[in-house]
């Protein structure tokens, strides 16, 4: 087991954001963490990345409590950009290269080229979509065991979405796993091995994507809509 969440609970202002979350992530699979806005997706991912404390429960990465070790092996794309806007693209690449042992600089430059990003550009001069692509490049250039992408497709147009999905598929290591959170299910479902439905802080369904399609005779998107009619 690569990652295990046991009985995670977390409240903000007496409101339960995570409610007894149990989750197992194994090696070599792509998971979709699917849920509406504001149901706890980002909170859960922050907890797994040890960026938020929890009220109850524990998160184990390769059997060890999360901490320095897990951070060395988890490559995380947060929901919001955290890059210093005054830096140029190559500055950020150098920064990542110094910071992470598993960072592959050549790969980063190759991906920049593939995604049509200029290494000499200052981040503040880049569009939101370009900044998102840059962040994805940084995250995918690490040789991690687990990639966690929080809404990687949010700010980009549908044509670029396909391109980003390709980049994700062709660049994640063999044997590594990935958790992608999104509410744009139909765009992403074809690449998922497993799906995790989350609602109001609870995991409400987990399973193999193709198995669910077979049993329900419907797309994951459709199953999701039926379940969370609003």
């Amino acid at each position: 087991m690569l990652l295990e969440c046991k009985h995670l609970s977390k409240s903000f202002d007496n409101k339960k954001i995570l409610d007894d979350v149990n989750l197992k992530i194994s090696e070599g699979k792509i998971y979709g963490l699917l849920g509406k806005n504001g149901v706890g997706k980002s909170t859960l991912l922050k907890v797994i990345n040890n960026l938020l404390t929890i009220d109850e429960g524990e998160v184990l990465f390769e059997g060890k409590l999360i901490g320095v070790y897990s951070k060395e092996h988890i490559s995380y794309l947060p929901e919001r950009t955290y890059l210093d806007k005054d830096m140029k693209v190559y500055d950020v690449i150098n920064f990542f290269d110094e910071f992470y042992k598993d960072f592959n600089k050549e790969k980063a430059y190759k991906l920049l080229k593939d995604l049509d990003l200029d290494k000499d550009k200052t981040i503040s001069k880049m569009s939101k979509g370009m900044q998102e692509k840059l962040q994805l490049v940084l995250v995918m250039s690490r040789n991690a065991k687990l990639y966690i992408l929080d809404e990687p497709l949010g700010g980009v147009d549908p044509a670029t979405r396909d391109y980003i999905l390709d980049t994700i598929l062709s660049n994640f290591n063999e044997g590594a796993s990935m958790i992608i959170s999104t509410h744009l299910i139909s765009d992403i479902e074809r690449v998922l091995d497993e799906v995790i439905f989350i609602d109001k802080g609870k995991i409400v369904l987990t399973g193999e994507a193709d198995e669910i399609r077979k049993n329900e005779n419907a797309s994951i998107d459709e199953v999701f809509r039926r379940m969370f009619k609003c």
Partner: peptide, 17 residues
Amino acid sequence: VRELAVIYKVNPNTVQK
């Protein structure tokens, strides 16, 4: 498997299966 995954734009595990 990896080449097929890229060609068909699906997950390598799906190709394997």
